[in-house]
Design a protein around this nucleic acid. Structure first.
Length: 213
DNA sequence: TCGACGATCATCT
DNA sequence: GATGATCGTCGAG
């Protein structure tokens, strides 16, 4: 029996554009996880970051690196790249940019934050905040938190995001006037790329991670 | 409310 | 052997 999707998955062509453009366009879209029993978890994305690939010192694909860890960064646009960091957190990316074979490769959008739209209680439970006071940003206000809330780990590395168990879906795109841009977080080692304004967020949204834009 | 710091380990040097 | 696309706690203000 095919999985029925209440939300409409974004097609692969959505990701086949310059990475910053995809990153901005993902704000206001949904990240959905179907649980198989008819229930689901859904987040409205409010913060993303663009990683350009070979030309970007902050990117895991900088200088064309192709190690086992980053292999899925070279899958076709629209696939997931999930990595483990700081010994305890996972981060989810959507591969984006030109098709493999073109000059620029290894581009991706880091999904940094979202606000719960469906299954919020389950997310709070996944985060271990059951019974505690949950303040803005506690559920999915950061890349590691978001993965914990959605139950995303390395098992999702390399899966297509077009409409399987985990996918990105339509929703309401955010107008340019409501998008804030600034430097990316946690990449102090990246030389000139440190200041590139490739972090995007919905202006004034309380779920956006720190530092505030 | 904010800044500093320790946790913890896969990956790369 | 070092380090990181982070997070939660703790102590100071």
């Amino acid at each position: 029996m095919p999985v029925s999707h209440l939300y409409t998955p974004l097609p692969g062509s959505f990701y086949r554009r310059p990475v910053p453009e995809v990153a901005r366009d993902l704000l206001g879209r949904y990240l959905v996880r179907e649980n198989g029993d008819g229930s689901r978890l859904a987040l409205r994305l409010v913060e993303t970051e663009a990683y350009l690939g070979a030309s970007d010192r902050a990117s895991h694909a900088w200088a064309g690196r192709r190690t086992d860890r980053v292999a899925s960064l070279y899958l076709p646009p629209g696939h997931a790249y999930v990595y483990f960091i700081y010994g305890m957190h996972y981060c989810l990316n959507a591969v984006a940019g030109p098709e493999p074979g073109d000059e620029a490769q290894g581009g991706a959008v880091l999904i940094r934050a979202g606000e719960a739209v469906e299954g919020r209680d389950r997310m709070v439970s996944n985060r271990g905040w059951e019974g505690k006071r949950v303040r803005p940003g506690d559920v999915a206000g950061g890349p590691g938190k978001l993965c914990k809330a959605m139950g995303i780990d390395r098992a999702f590395d390399g899966v297509p995001l077009f409409g399987g168990e985990l996918y990105l879906a339509e929703g309401v795109p955010t107008p340019e006037s409501e998008i804030a841009a600034g430097p990316r977080v946690g990449i102090d080692y990246a030389g000139e790329a440190v200041s590139w304004p490739l972090r995007f967020a919905v202006k004034g949204n309380p779920e956006v991670s720190r530092p505030r834009l």
